[in-house]
Design a protein around this nucleic acid. Structure first.
Length: 548
RNA sequence: GCGCCCGUAGCUUAAUGGACAGAGCGACGGCCUCCGGAGCCGUAGGCUGGAGGUUCGAAUCCUCUCGGGCGCACCA
């Protein structure tokens, strides 16, 4: 509907003022008295035309009112200082309700038709367990993917596995040292190695299952690298699935080198004039693109930097796999990397606008007013697994989701635990349960749900009922906005509002036991609301509970 | 020093440049013969860190400033 109004106003401006004006903004007002949809376009237009914004608004309104289009609205009003507000007809609400019940109104939207989008998230180094910050990126990425899928994009959720490089080697050597310690050998632990207790656990596991004794010195590290990455990744997958997150694809960094992609990219960069040899290394001349320094791609010892592999990786996403849009979810500490990748895309003749990054700010875990840094169990930073065990997956997901990703998040553990009795998550789930329980009662009493054509929706006439109907009617537009703006945290607010409206309805109105006509109309409203809650819970990845 | 992010109610925070800045928690006061009270209704609490500017309109954009976080590798 939002789109239709935009389109219509655009044409109205062409007809009335014979000018083509863009963009037309149509918003869902914060206050219900300002209508279901509203546009400030006359205010913008007044600087271009010699009318006051109020005059413009009135002229446009006159034009709109005469049209067939306006018949869908109860009222179209001009408001100070020049808004045009649209109030949907009750019959429009009723039509939506009917569509929800009989035509799968909440099905996927068609806007992303045929467009391939990749959302890459988590992609943690497999050198240690996932911690709470990874959880935030994981949920934001997952929900973003779910929303885009709902909008009709073809979405792939990807996890990039850093299975080569210096860090992995260091990790393998740390395990090796622990292994040797366990077998009684005296060794010096690598000074910059990984000290976590999980490294010792892994070494112990190897000792029990896979003896290293028969491997030569240089084969040991190779074996350990592969083994460690495999084990760590297995752990990551397991923890993510506890959070209800399952990636579609795990992309191995190793493949970039083995497949010759890195060489391919280097060749193109050379051809496009972005390579330079200096001090025995190969540099990307990114200063030509506005960077403050050139960046090394191939080190003087011929090994590859992370950067060249990442360039090759993104080249692969766009050119080999043909994604139209790639969205990476990164920790905010990598923000400098964003322009670097965009620059590299430019140098490969790929439009950098097709590449987006959602930066996730830090997460601090707070308990009793103080930040918790270490975990008792592992001696590491609090792991994601521990957090989920502590507060549960739904609470964790919801709390991660309520805050905008570019704002730092204080995850108050006490509050999360206390809230588990009195928590927005349960509030929303409870609304879903209540709706279900009314329907269950109806079934027990043998009440049959009539077809929409046989139900008199006009009996839904209280403010509370209209509020619910209105929320149902604007839900798809709301989700659309959430998807386009890549602001998944809006879902938290949207679903809370809907739950609130339903609880109020539940409190004020009886459904079963009213006159048969009213009973039917309200049952339909309950079914519609339940579908909407179901959609929202699915998008947020929060469990739909039937009983609490 | 340079770059990015954030300062909103006691706490955690929301608000595609729009209309009176919304919620939750906490505090205070009401509501259970009724489909589940994990609920509902109400009260108090804000110069959106500060100062300028752009705009018909600024929490939002620009400049400066004060606080906090992060990043500035032939690490990933």
């Amino acid at each position: 509907m939002q789109k239709q109004i935009e389109e219509f106003i655009k044409n109205a401006i062409i007809s009335v003022f014979s000018m083509d004006y863009e963009p037309i903004e149509v918003e869902i007002p914060l206050r219900e008295e300002h209508g279901d949809f509203s546009t400030p376009t006359p205010l913008k237009l007044s600087s271009l035309l010699s009318y006051s914004s109020l005059e413009l608004a009135n002229k446009l309104k006159e034009f709109i009112i005469k049209s067939e289009f306006s018949k869908q609205f109860e009222a179209i009003k001009v408001a100070q200082p020049g808004f045009i507000n649209f109030y949907l007809k009750k019959s429009y609400y009723f039509e939506v309700l009917k569509q929800i019940l009989e035509h799968d109104y909440f099905a996927r939207l068609g806007m992303g038709e045929g467009k391939k989008v990749q959302v890459e998230f988590v992609s943690a180094n497999p050198t240690g367990p996932l911690h709470i910050a990874h959880g935030r990126g994981a949920v934001i990425g997952d929900v973003t993917a779910r929303i885009l899928e709902h909008l009709g994009y073809e979405v792939q959720k990807e996890y990039y596995v850093n299975d080569t490089g210096g860090q992995i080697e260091k990790f393998a050597k740390s395990i090796e040292a622990r292994y040797d310690e366990l077998t009684g050998k005296k060794v010096e632990f690598p000074s910059d190695g990984y000290h976590g207790t999980y490294v010792i656990d892994m070494a112990r596991n190897i000792m029990n299952n896979h003896s290293l004794d028969y491997l030569t010195e240089n084969k040991r590290v190779g074996f350990l690298m592969e083994y460690a990455v495999g084990e760590m990744l297995k752990d990551h997958k397991e923890v993510l699935s506890l959070l209800n997150i399952n990636h579609d694809n795990y992309f191995k960094e190793k493949y970039l080198v083995d497949s010759g992609l890195v060489d391919e990219v280097l060749t193109i960069l050379k051809k496009n004039g972005y390579l330079e040899e200096k001090d025995g290394a190969i540099w990307f001349t990114s200063t030509d693109l506005g960077d403050d320094k050139d960046r090394v791609l191939v080190k003087s010892d011929k090994s590859l930097t992370y950067f060249i592999k990442d360039i090759a990786y993104h080249y692969e996403k766009f050119v080999k796999r043909g994604f139209d849009i790639v969205i990476d979810v990164w920790g905010a500490d990598h923000h400098n990397h964003v322009t670097r990748i965009k620059n590299s895309l430019k140098s490969l003749n790929i439009n950098p606008d097709r590449f987006e990054v959602i930066l996730i700010q830090l997460v601090r875990l707070i308990s009793k007013g103080k930040e918790i840094l270490m975990s008792k169990r592992s001696g590491e930073f609090i792991t994601l697994r521990e957090l989920i065990e502590e507060v549960g997956k739904d609470v964790a997901r919801y709390i991660y989701l309520t805050r905008s990703s570019n704002s730092p998040l204080d995850f108050d553990l006490d509050l999360a635990l206390k809230e588990s009795m009195d928590n927005p998550v349960f509030y929303i789930q409870y609304a879903y349960v209540r709706a279900g329980s009314i329907l269950k009662q109806a079934a027990i009493k043998g009440i049959e749900i009539r077809k929409a054509d046989e139900v008199n929706y006009a009996l839904l006439s209280s403010n509370t009922e209209f509020r619910l109907l209105r929320l149902l009617s604007i839900l798809q537009d709301e989700i659309l906005l959430t998807g386009i703006k890549r602001t998944p945290h809006r879902l938290a607010t949207t679903s809370r509002k809907l739950a609130e409206a339903f609880h109020e309805f539940y409190q004020l109105h009886k459904v079963i036991g009213e006159s048969a006509e009213l009973e039917q109309a309200r049952l339909h409203l309950v079914i519609g609301t339940r579908s909407a809650l179901e959609l929202l819970l699915n998008l947020m990845g929060i469990t739909k509970v039937e009983e609490m």
